[in-house]
Design a protein around this nucleic acid. Structure first.
Length: 316
DNA sequence: GCATGTCAAGTTGTG
DNA sequence: CACAACTTGACATGC
């Protein structure tokens, strides 16, 4: 099989859970208790990440997206902290090294997908500054963990998509190297289609992560096969990343954007089957959905309808 | 126990 | 104009 399937962030059946912390709860604690709380959660999450990689290896899943708040609130202006200041810093660093070594030994691709608050193209300088701080954290963590990709949406258009992409490119050039070498952009389901992002990728060399479900929600003049090929070319020889998901509500009956528990194999574009790509599976049933899609893809291509419909247009 | 509201942060489209 | 959705869930609170 040429498609490398990836799991996003969490498990539904495996007994692996990540903990979180809110700034509000931390602010209510005296300094010593606050530090102890942060330490416990960070250590738990670092050890859970080791367990996650071990589970992924055991299950035959070949890529894993690491949840961004692995070290919760580390960049928060009030309750932020440094790893070195935690009592368990050494143990946490050792766990991160173990993750890096395991992933390398078993050829597991690791990525990040920072959340919606990271908007380098915002016209608001404070938002850009927060985004820079958050991306710098991701680059630092990616170095420690051996993660290869930090994937972002391009953000808002503010009525002028071209100007927004120009701001994005300007911010990109000033990012720390640990971020610049890993950053990718993904087409989203309401603002930037693949066609709109291609000029940015050409101007900057940023690879394009192609999300076929978003493309079906926000189509452009490109067919799915054309977008797949153009996105793959932006990876300059690296293995491309793509995203797949199926709509919770069937096409034509309600909002297509929410994700279903599992992937309908018919939603996998036919042309993907003959490519070498990493495909992150965005499905609510998490590892169960990845494993089911693996099984379904083994049955394919015999039963797969090829050529698949040239969605987005055919489905609408 | 369990249900419910809340949690740093942005942006857009819907009702 | 408030609010949900986004890739998404865990924690605190109150019964």
């Amino acid at each position: 099989m040429s498609l490398r399937l990836g799991l996003c962030c969490i498990f539904i059946q495996e007994p692996i859970r990540f903990r979180s912390l809110t700034a509000k709860a931390l602010l209510a604690l005296p300094p010593a208790a606050r530090r102890a709380r942060i330490d416990a959660v960070c250590r738990h999450n670092a050890e859970s990440l080791v367990a996650a990689i071990q589970a992924v290896i055991r299950l035959g899943i070949e890529a894993f997206r690491i949840l961004s708040p692995l070290l919760p609130r580390i960049t928060h202006p009030q309750v932020g902290y440094r790893l070195e200041d935690l009592p368990s810093a050494t143990a946490i660093r050792q766990a991160f090294s173990q993750v890096r070594d395991l992933a390398k030994a078993h050829d597991i691709r690791l990525s990040f997908h920072p959340d919606q608050f990271v908007v380098p193209a915002s016209p608001n300088p404070a938002v850009r500054e927060n985004s820079l701080r958050e991306l710098t954290y991701h680059g630092w963590l990616a170095d420690l963990l051996g993660a290869e990709v930090i994937n972002l949406h391009a953000g808002g258009a503010y009525g002028d998509p071209a100007a927004a992409l120009t701001r994005f490119a300007a911010v990109f050039r000033d990012l720390p190297e640990a971020v610049r070498t890993r950053l990718t952009v993904e087409n989203d389901d309401r603002v930037f289609s693949p066609r709109q992002l291609l000029p940015l990728t050409e101007a900057t060399g940023i690879p394009l992560v192609y999300d076929v479900h978003h493309h079906r929600c926000l189509p452009d003049d490109l067919s799915i096969d054309e977008a797949t090929a153009l996105a793959a070319a932006t990876w300059a020889g690296r293995e491309p990343y793509c995203h797949i998901s199926s709509p919770l509500h069937p096409w034509g009956s309600g909002d297509p954007k929410p994700h279903a528990d599992f992937i309908d194999p018919a939603d996998v574009p036919c042309s993907w089957l003959s490519r070498s790509m990493t495909v992150d599976v965005e499905a609510k049933a998490k590892e169960l959905a990845v494993l089911q899609l693996q099984r379904d893809l083994e049955r394919l291509p015999n039963e797969h309808p090829c050529p698949s419909p040239l969605r987005p247009t055919d489905l609408r």
